[in-house]
């Protein structure tokens, strides 16, 4: 079997909601259940009043028809309940969107049609390196995600770690996430953003702190120089792939598409839609338009079979 099967690639998919796995998702879950309980309660009261009005003896109905009840149940009760819920909700979620504090781990996630550009920032907010469609974080530590968009409104949603937050062109929204346990937490664009919106998924990978440091050191490095001697590297270069894609350590320095420096170690291709293996890589390059219509990468039917395989082999070797 190739490096990773679909089973591993899509671990945690579809993401369960109301199953919080971190301190920023728990209050949302609590709030959701609280609101639901309140809705059920109010519904029960209203239906009971309706039943009384329709079927109860005259004395009961007279009591229900008084003006005092309209003032109390019709105005006073909603004002009190809704205000209380609003205050409770705001206080529960206030911490979720706080601005990054010094010492926070900062990651900038940019929504693009239809994938996620992920830039790891240093303490001063400068970009250190880029990746795509996967966000790696250490467990037990809050991470400030700076959410942006380059084209249309997307919405960042990883239900087990945080609430939805829109990514709005020209704005930077901050969303804090934290995972308590190592694992993979799936996410999905939650705001219709065009044709391939449904095919715009991602995953948050939470590592134990040591593993995270190891991962980050590896991801920040360019791919091993010897890998670029593979026959596929030449095809990649000659076909102009570097106009849109970067492979750090080579002449490929395009910024329109995802950084491919370590593409072989990603869990999925096409933003969470395909398992990542040589076959899917070759198929994606040859005709990504058949898989994800309208995506910004053109189909490459010009490559012959051998070149296509060589390119896929090369890209898969970039671990």
């Amino acid at each position: 079997m190739t490096a990773r099967t679909a089973h591993d690639s899509f671990k945690g998919w579809p993401p369960p909601v109301l199953d919080p796995a971190g301190p920023f998702a728990t209050p949302l879950s609590t709030l959701t259940w609280g609101l639901l309980a309140m809705c059920v309660l109010v519904m029960a009261v209203v239906l009971t009043a309706l039943a009384i009005a329709l079927f109860a003896p005259r004395s009961w109905r007279r009591r229900l028809g008084g003006e005092r009840l309209v003032w109390i149940a019709g105005l006073g009760f909603p004002v009190v309940v809704l205000s209380a819920l609003l205050i409770w909700g705001l206080s529960l979620t206030a911490r979720l969107t706080e601005a990054p504090r010094p010492g926070d781990l900062r990651v900038r996630v940019t929504g693009e049609m239809w994938w996620w550009r992920v830039a790891y920032l240093d303490a001063a907010g400068r970009e250190t390196f880029q990746d795509a469609n996967e966000i790696h974080i250490p467990v037990g530590r809050p991470v400030a995600l700076e959410l942006e968009s380059t084209d249309v409104i997307h919405s960042f949603w990883v239900p087990r770690l945080a609430g939805k937050l829109d990514m709005i062109p020209g704005r930077r929204n901050v969303l804090r996430v934290q995972a308590d346990q190592p694992g993979t937490y799936s996410g999905q664009c939650a705001e219709y953003c065009g044709g391939a919106h449904a095919l715009m998924a991602f995953v948050v990978v939470a590592h134990a702190p040591d593993d995270y440091e190891r991962w980050r050191a590896g991801a920040a490095r360019p791919a091993e120089a010897s890998l670029h001697k593979a026959p596929g590297a030449l095809v990649f270069q000659n076909s102009g792939c570097g106009a849109c894609h970067s492979i750090r350590g080579t002449t490929a320095n395009g910024v329109a598409g995802p950084d491919l420096t370590h593409v072989g170690s990603r869990r999925t291709l096409g933003a969470g839609v395909l398992p990542n293996n040589t076959g899917t890589m070759a198929g994606w390059i040859a005709d990504s338009q058949a898989i994800k219509p309208g995506n910004r990468m053109p189909a490459y039917p010009v490559l012959n079979g051998q070149d296509l395989r060589a390119t896929a082999d090369y890209l898969e070797s970039l671990k």
Partner: peptide, 8 residues
């Protein structure tokens, strides 16, 4: 000459 890679 095939485009189909070894599947593993």
């Amino acid at each position: 000459a095939t485009a189909m890679p070894a599947t593993g």
